[in-house]
Amino acid sequence: MKKLLEVKDLSISFDTYGAEVQAVRNISFHLDEKETLAIVGESGSGKSVTAQSLMRLVPMPPGKFVGGSIIFDGEDITQKSEKQMESIRGKDISMIFQDPMTSLNPTMTVGKQIAEGLIKHQNLSKKAAHDRGVELLKLVGIPNPEARIKQYPHQYSGGMRQRAMIAIALACNPKILIADEPTTALDVTIQAQILDLMRELQDKTGTAIILITHDLGVVANAASRVAVMYGGKIVETGTVDEIFYNPKHPYTWGLLGSMPKLDAEGEELQAIPGSPPDLADPPKGCPFVTRCPYAMKVCEQHMPDYKELSSTQKTACWLLDERAPDVEPPESAIVGGTEVHG
């Protein structure tokens, strides 16, 4: 499969009053054509900053590009001028955000907001852009699109606003769609509708999706590959099956164990003790060392290298070193055998 996007050793920091917060520290990953890559992590893990940096949306200052490269279409995005970025944003790479109410413009009709990109990037006339807008609203499942296109975002419900956002993002047939927590603000029944819609549209248009989320259920439902982020680093990456059925990083185990299982009886949840590291003063070694039940001396001092467990799975953990003791994942982290009712 062809690599669409390749991120190498990317580091991004923020200058704050007290110190430099190292939000993203030396991460590398790639995105294949037509796939869905999920980036999972808790708040403050750096997943949203990573996503924003792909479109150069990190405000600088206070943001600061420390190093690395983002190769898209053979060119390094980090080296482009603001003007050049304008012709990429919304055309080749577009984005949908968590909160559809605050990311749509309340003073513009939905139709105008869809037409904006079409007029700029595809040189359509106002009339043609309007017609294409109606088509797009129909495509994302908004009933009565001819009337709805003239309305303002506040006249839409939460689920419909997210559909409208998707329509805007897909207007110019982008190669990459970045979805930053697209369903977090929505109710479960609406979430199911939106996830279905995204899958259906991907089948039709072949857009590759980067899905940022903290919800492992959404990951299992929508992703083909997963990158797990913690403390500004990617600690484990693999196909969705590898991450759920053969996870090797204790943080991935912890995440899987903290989720209540619908079919399990009320035993204690396996909480991860403590809280995430302060990225203004990140641990010298592995970021998970303070909360890891298996932490060793070496973990405090040195960041482990990635160990390739298969052609697709890579994990950064000292437990995988041949000198480390053998550790089995806890029972709570074992996924599978879920019975589905209802």
């Binding site: 479960v188 029944t189 979430q191 199911a192 996830l195 919800d215 492992l216 259920g217 959404v218 990951v219 299992a220 439902n221 929508a222 969705v240 099956d241 759920f244 059925y245 899987l256 989720m259 619908l262 996924v335 599978g336 879920t338 589905v340 009712h341 209802g342």
Partner: peptide
């Protein structure tokens, strides 16, 4: 119940 995504890709 059926709308909740479960953390199990196979399911």
């Amino acid at each position: 119940l059926s709308a909740i995504p479960l953390a199990d890709p196979e399911v």
